[in-house]
Nucleic acid binder design. Structure first.
Length: 487
RNA sequence: GCCCCAUUCGUCUAGCGGCCUAGGACGUGGCCCUCUCAAGGCCAAAACAGGGGUUCGAGUCCCCUAUGGGGCACCA
């Protein structure tokens, strides 16, 4: 039956948003937007021991940075609230008790020590000891006020099949399923109970979650059946694996890229590394989903129009970080220069530079095709914001030149620059090109010397535009300094 | 150990029984452009995990093996 589309992203507030979580959120959001449905943010904070204050803010901040807006949830409210599980404990308790009353769950008085002992003996799950307690034994425990958990009475035989929208039927033998805990001894629900109860009462139509949840799908199916509720349609998104080979992507195991950078894993690390949110979104949609038509670059609007589950790939894959660098470069080049200039300010300031807006606006077009991440501006164009540059002698001396010819070239250039009517790029270029002839140097030699003298770098934006921005006085100063260096 | 899921170039992927001489993209290599580096243009190398079936025909369907991943908590 077709229900109105209502999907949710349900993170636990145990820290900042992980890129994998962001991908799950994105796919849910795209699904909702494509179908004109509702996207809900729900906070699953039922484990009080793992709660990290401030996480919710970190998560909502991350979602907003990506441009994912939620229709119901924290900060925006909605008719199905509260959207924070710790504020709904009464509900879970009520339904756990309902299951007990209807003989679909039972109180288990086993101590953590006994459970640990079971595990040591190699018992998987739970041995169902308390499932078979006599009424007298139960009464005894209750009279003593023993603490208990509520466990689900899993069917002992038969099999359970859940239909996954992406991978088809998933079938398990019920005998391999355990009597999972529904309500903990502190009165809080476990994930399984809270998740099922909330999805039902929030009228969730489709569950799109990470693939590590596949094993609990049949368990949830049994819970829905016990309650007599209809289970939402479900789909498991493929895992994202570490780029360096081992296991699923995690902060601890992500490792480093080939060029020695730390692989970003938390969403805010992507922002801090200078990636654009639109590029991250585009990148994420290319993992586990494909646009079709052999296209890799597309807008969110286009994605929303086209997004569906049939194009989601069931197999997990490695996190293709270098593709993000390429994509981000494209998005940087497509950003209007004035806007890019505004974005470039932050990384420069973080690097300790005092940024003049006017100067930055003039520099931006020169580096736009030369950076892949916003942060690259520091290395590429930092010299514009320094009073002095410190070229190395070995960098100054070009191929098939020596200290003397380099010095001579600098002196000749100084005289040429002194006599120019203006300091426009065109003027500079024609004058300096003419100078290469009189000096008998290749363009790359003379320009190379000047580039290093003026920028302090072997790799820099185009020379003449750079010189025009740096200005005649500073250029001459830096040339003098280079000459002194060679003396 | 038990259970579940997956398996196409190094990587992300297209492919839903004949359009496959397996397409695109990143990366890599080469060439062009060029003041360095980019950007851009052109070209190249590069894959159906293995074995059995089913079928006139299999990358596409089924089974087995191998490999990878995930799950087996009073964590989500």
């Amino acid at each position: 039956m077709d229900r109105p589309v209502r999907v949710r992203f349900a993170p636990s507030p145990t820290g900042p948003l992980h890129i994998g979580g962001a991908r799950t959120a994105l796919f849910n959001w795209l699904f909702a937007r494509h179908h004109g449905g509702v996207f809900i943010l729900r906070i699953e904070d039922t484990d009080r021991t793992r709660y990290v204050p401030g996480s919710v803010e970190l998560i909502t901040e991350g979602l907003r940075w990506l441009g994912l807006d939620w229709d119901e949830g924290p900060e925006v409210g909605g008719d199905y609230g509260p959207y924070v599980q710790s504020e709904r404990v009464g509900l879970y308790r009520e339904w756990a008790d309902w299951l007990v009353a209807h003989d679909k769950a039972y109180r288990c008085y086993c101590s953590p020590e006994r459970l640990k002992e079971l595990r040591k003996r190699g018992v998987q799950g739970y041995d169902r000891h308390c499932r078979y307690l006599s009424p007298e034994e139960r009464a005894e425990h209750d009279a003593r006020g023993d603490s208990y958990v509520i466990r689900f009475k899993m069917p002992l035989e038969g099999q359970t099949t859940v239909h996954d929208l992406i991978r088809g039927d998933i079938t398990v033998e019920n005998s391999t399923l355990t009597d999972l805990v529904l309500l903990k001894s502190d009165g809080f629900p476990t994930y399984h109970l809270a998740n099922v109860v909330d999805d039902h009462f929030m009228e969730i139509s489709h569950i799109l979650r990470a693939d590590e949840w596949i094993p609990s799908a049949p368990v949830h199916w049994q819970l829905y059946r016990a309650f007599g509720w209809e289970m939402p349609a479900i789909a498991h998104l493929p895992v994202i694996l570490n780029p360096n080979g081992k296991g699923k992507l995690s902060k601890r195991k992500a490792g480093f890229t080939h060029d020695g950078r730390k692989v970003p894993v938390l969403l805010h690390e992507f922002r801090e590394a200078g990636y654009l949110p639109a590029a991250v979104v585009n990148f994420l949609t290319n993992i586990g989903w494909s646009f079709g038509e052999d296209r890799e670059v597309f807008s969110v609007e286009e994605t929303i129009q086209r997004f569906d589950l049939s194009r989601v790939n069931p197999s997990g894959g490695v996190f293709p970080l270098n593709k993000l660098d390429w994509l981000n470069g494209i998005y940087i080049r497509e950003t209007p220069p004035d806007e890019l200039a505004r974005l470039l300010r932050e990384p420069l300031e973080r690097a300790g530079y005092t940024v003049d807006d006017d100067l930055l606006r003039r520099i931006t077009p020169l580096i736009q095709t030369r950076i892949h991440r916003l942060n690259d501006v520091v290395e590429m164009a930092g010299f514009f914001f320094r009073d002095q540059v410190t070229p190395g002698v070995e960098d100054l001396i070009q191929k098939r030149m020596d200290a003397d010819s380099t010095k001579a070239a600098l002196e000749a250039a100084r005289e040429t620059l002194l006599g120019l009517p203006d300091f426009e790029p065109e003027t500079l270029e024609s004058a300096l090109r003419a100078l290469t002839d009189t000096l008998g140097l290749k363009a790359r030699q003379l320009f190379g010397v000047l580039r290093v003298a003026i920028t302090g770098q072997r790799v820099a934006p185009p020379l003449f535009e750079t010189m025009a921005i740096v200005g005649r006085d500073k250029c001459l100063e830096r040339i003098e300094a280079a000459i002194r260096l060679l003396a």
